[in-house]
Nucleic acid binder design. Structure first.
Lengths: 138, 138
DNA sequence: CTTGACTCTGGAGTTAAGTCAAGGGTCTAT
DNA sequence: ATAGACCCTTGACTTAACTCCAGAGTCAAG
């Protein structure tokens, strides 16, 4: 049978965060309040590990903990509507960011190859500062 | 003829940041030290505006000011090599992030449609918390 | 030559997201 | 029944990236 309860430290290592972070997330209600043992040790269900990972991923993509909390909200119908709208909005954001990331990727790639040419041709050129603009005065 | 010098406030509004941010960036050497008028007002070249925008964009994509500074560095051949390497690394990061963003996009989109179905079908269902996992215990 | 909008410096304050430390329990393997 | 590994709470600290403030100077228009 699968393990079904985890203490703080175990959640932390499994999800790849610090133990303090797990407690911090619980305080912020990003994780539901965990149950406790007789000795007051937290006990989390396995879903909490996934949840922490979800949070971390969303965070990587530029969502704040607050926004993430919005996405995790649970409740009646109007809550649902709110999550729905937020979701649509976030999806829209994400698409915008995907687009500009691709553009930026292009900029960096262009610079990279320019930089390579520079290094190849005049072996010790002035340099290749990454800046999508002229190089003289600022 | 084009305007060729800008004071702090103008750079700020054109680049869409606060005036404090412009000064802050100058302090951090993300912008080259601006020239001054007789009365000690900063004078920036037009490139500074582009530079601020570049910084903001990179930042949106998850680069820290410190990393960005690395990309802007200028200097001899080894500096160049360093920028080159950093650039390659960042490009690689970016690709990873693009991938996981797309995946996450999928997750959100799936939730969105699930949420919509929920709202459509049982008009006032329990709700649709965004969580890529089971809903019972944490 | 005054007024109102703008700018300067230096330093303190803020926010998000942790991170650390002190002082003290708990658990389990021997 | 004790050592070593965990865990608890409270509250202070840290870092990045701003943001705000006071007190003072500058500039363009009328």
């Amino acid at each position: 049978m699968q393990q079904t309860e985890f203490r703080t430290g175990e959640v932390a290592t499994r999800a790849g965060v610090s133990i303090d972070t797990v407690r911090y997330y619980e305080r912020l209600k990003l994780l539901p309040r965990a149950g406790r043992t007789a000795g007051n040790f937290r006990l989390f269900g396995p879903d909490s590990i996934d949840r922490v990972q979800f949070i971390k991923q969303a965070q990587e993509l530029g969502f704040s903990l607050d926004e993430i909390k919005g996405l995790l909200a649970t409740g009646g119908a109007e809550e649902c509507r709110k999550v729905h709208d937020l979701l649509g909005e976030k999806l829209h954001d994400l698409d915008g960011r995907l687009k500009s990331m691709k553009k930026f990727r292009g900029v960096l790639a262009r610079h990279l190859s320019e930089c390579e040419r520079e290094l190849r041709e005049h072996k010790q050129a002035a340099c290749c500062p990454v800046l999508p603009i002229g190089k003289k005065r600022y």
